[in-house]
Write a protein that binds this DNA or RNA. Structure first.
Ligand code: FES
Ligand code: FES
Lengths: 154, 154
DNA sequence: ACATACCTTACTATAATTGTCAAGTATGCA
DNA sequence: TGCATACTTGACAATTATAGTAAGGTATGT
């Protein structure tokens, strides 16, 4: 039941982008340095995030990425769903799956279905604004992890 | 965010055990045949389930496994937690993890923590009795999956 | 004794994930 | 125009986790 590190990275990167962008584009190089995420890996993530219309890109020197919408209109659930292949706990919940008959026949299906709904519901109840608001009111104290995010390995 | 098939198997097997046991022990061979789960794999699962004190075993001919408690006292969350290595969505939530400092510093931690609590809370709100009750009131109609469970691959 | 059925460890194959590499395209600026 | 920046995209290797197999052992009822 682990979240992929991709998803954790993506949320961290989005928080970083949101915190450091003041209207201007933020380059992946910056994010990579601050968050200690491999640049090439970030590129893959943002490729997906762009397709998911969560960010837009500006090419060329001085370019980078910008939020596609306001912080308050970007849900954590969206970010996770965009970079993860599937957010649902079991395969039969996915769109287009026909391998087992649902409905009244399957006892356990409703359990996993309910679980999936809770997960999505919870993650969709939190926006980027919720996360950055906290960071802004709390001026970065010292320490090696000053912006308040951490490695997914721990 | 996928549940392991181990967990799905385990819940299915426990439902099966619960449905077919009428006080007497149920052998893994039976469950294996009905649920089409490899016997050796079931043995591994029940090894864990026994350690988790969810079932007890009776050895020798005519032996098998019995629920350690009443159906209504066995939560789905317990079963999943017992056979999965970890139920929490990120590593830093696990017991004994010291790799990153929690508390006020980490912005995203509270999100994953909240998520983990929802997941566990939901799965703990459902008991084996909830699942079998439904099956008992609905006398097995024909079909190839008569007891109302299905393969995790679909 | 013998058959049943649980107990336990070890191992392998397969898939998913993580992360790297490399080559390309668009753009701003001197 | 030429160059540096930085996004774009696909392919791929390394690592890890999972699923499943195998085999031998132990307890117990008949
Ligand atoms: S149909 Fe979804 S778990 Fe059975
Ligand atoms: S301390 Fe848990 S996610 Fe950062």
């Amino acid at each position: 039941m682990r979240l992929s590190t991709r998803a954790q990275y993506a949320v961290r990167a989005m928080v970083d982008l949101s915190l450091y962008s003041e209207g201007r584009p933020v380059s992946l190089k910056e994010i990579s340095r601050r968050e200690e995420i491999p640049l090439n890996y970030l590129e893959q993530l943002f490729f997906r995030l762009k397709k998911g219309q969560i960010v837009t890109s500006v090419r060329g020197p001085g370019g980078g990425y910008v939020l596609a919408r306001q912080e308050s209109a970007i849900k954590v659930g969206e970010i996770v769903e965009t970079v993860e292949e599937q957010l649902s706990p079991v395969a039969c919940l996915d769109e287009g799956d026909r391998s087992c008959r649902r409905g009244a026949r399957c006892l356990t299906h409703t359990v996993w279905q309910g679980l999936g709904e809770r997960i999505k519901g919870f993650l969709d109840s939190i926006t980027l604004a919720d996360l950055t608001r906290e960071a802004r009111t709390r001026p970065a104290g010292g320490g090696d992890n000053e912006k308040g995010v951490c490695q997914p390995t721990g």
